[in-house]
């Protein structure tokens, strides 16, 4: 039996919004420690990992591990039926073929129950190696979103070059070029930890997709190292994270 309650449906909406541009369907793995999701996009260029510890939830019970195959479009439709400030309880029986979502209004005067059919998804899990990133950048999530959006106008590819003093985002296309540099700020809004300078090229449309997670977090962490996928991590308070990985583009 699995049961998890969040005091605000808005959080769940934000989480699903951060996933649904990359994934159509995915399996939520629930255990007594919390919930996890790991899936690649259809083209196997990016991967998203969601991790939420059980203490993130107002109530959490998972007597045995369950995997819930979800259609994210359908889940989004159900979440649209709820107000952001409704509390939400998700329930699934062992070996269930559906989940139940119950929404309770803030004043408890209205409850609404929905059942959502589960999917039997054949999903492979990947081993993500522990990586020592030679550049680790923290910056406001809204700033990262703005940069990704602004550069997409110029080119499909975005070059990220990180050195001791600054991180530079560049795009170069037929229309012209764009270069945005950020230096470490005294207020620590932007921090750079650089062991080795790294320059890598990435598809801008994936970066833009990752920024769907911006409403979840004030800050974003970016990890870069030569010849490994980019890490873009949005913490979810102190209880978990959404991590995106993106394979680089390489010169022919």
């Amino acid at each position: 039996m699995f049961e998890a309650r969040l005091s605000s449906t808005l959080t769940l909406k934000k989480i699903v919004d951060a996933l649904r541009d990359i994934l159509n369907q995915s399996t939520l793995d629930c255990s007594d420690t919390g919930i996890q999701l790991q899936a690649m996009d259809n083209s196997h260029v990016s991967l998203v990992c969601l991790c939420l510890r059980s203490d993130y939830f107002e109530k959490y019970k998972c007597s045995r591990n369950v995997s819930l195959g979800l259609d994210l479009k359908s889940l989004t439709k159900v979440l649209k039926c709820a107000n952001g400030d409704d509390a939400v309880t998700i329930k699934a029986a062992d070996k269930a073929d559906k989940i139940e979502l119950s929404f309770e209004s803030a004043g408890k005067e209205r409850t609404a129950d929905y059942e959502l059919r589960l999917l039997n998804l054949d999903q492979e899990h990947l081993a993500i190696p522990e990586t020592e990133y030679s550049c680790v950048i923290h910056m406001p999530a809204s700033e990262f979103a703005r940069i990704c959006r602004d550069l997409a106008v110029f080119s499909e590819s975005v070059v990220i070059a990180c050195s001791k003093n600054c991180i530079k985002f560049s795009a170069n296309g037929e229309m012209g070029s764009a270069n945005i540099k950020l230096s470490q700020t005294s207020k620590a809004e932007v921090t750079l930890q650089v062991d080795e300078p790294v320059t890598l090229s990435f598809a801008g449309r994936y970066l833009n997709t990752f920024t769907r997670a911006t409403p979840l977090s004030e800050k974003v962490k970016i990890g870069m190292a030569a010849d490994v996928p980019l890490l873009v991590e949005y913490p979810i308070e102190d209880y978990g994270y959404i991590r995106y990985y993106l394979a680089p583009k390489v010169d022919d």
Binding site: E124, L126, S157, S201, P229, A247
Partner: peptide, 14 residues
């Protein structure tokens, strides 16, 4: 020109 690498070449299936 550049080629997009797939993640499978970095992360192995369990």
């Amino acid at each position: 020109s550049q080629t997009q690498v797939r993640l499978d070449s970095f992360f192995k299936a369990l």
